[in-house]
Simulated assay, not measured.
Amino acid sequence: MPGRGHVEILADGTEHRTGIWIGNQKNRRDKLHGQQLAALAQLGVEWTVL
């Protein structure tokens, strides 16, 4: 997983701070619904399996 400072630069030149978003999701995973955890798991996010 990328670190909190990771920034994705898309083809159109926009930047997204994906590292912060992933960190927030991980820290708040106990508040995510089952469908949200399942969607993240399908994307390969290993910590979603509790």
Rank of each mutant, 00 (worst) to 15 (best):
M1E: 06
M1I: 08
P2Q: 05
P2K: 00
P2F: 05
P2H: 03
G3Q: 02
G3F: 05
G3N: 04
G5Y: 07
G5Q: 09
H6A: 04
H6T: 00
V7R: 02
V7W: 01
E8N: 04
E8I: 07
L10S: 01
L10W: 00
L10Q: 03
L10M: 06
L10G: 01
A11P: 01
D12H: 01
D12E: 02
D12Q: 08
G13H: 02
T14Y: 00
T14Q: 02
T14S: 02
E15Q: 01
H16M: 04
R17D: 07
T18E: 09
T18R: 14
G19S: 01
G19Y: 02
I20T: 12
W21Q: 13
I22N: 06
I22Y: 06
G23R: 06
N24Q: 12
N24H: 15
N24K: 10
Q25N: 11
Q25R: 14
K26E: 11
K26R: 14
N27D: 05
N27Y: 12
N27G: 11
R28M: 12
R28T: 10
D30V: 08
D30R: 13
K31C: 04
K31N: 13
L32T: 07
L32G: 06
H33T: 14
H33F: 13
G34Y: 11
G34D: 14
Q35T: 14
Q36L: 07
Q36R: 08
A38D: 11
A38V: 04
A39Q: 13
A39C: 12
A39M: 12
L40K: 12
L40S: 10
L40H: 05
A41W: 04
Q42Y: 11
L43R: 14
L43H: 10
G44W: 09
G44Q: 10
G44P: 09
G44R: 08
V45S: 07
V45D: 07
V45Y: 10
W47F: 07
V49Q: 15
L50E: 10
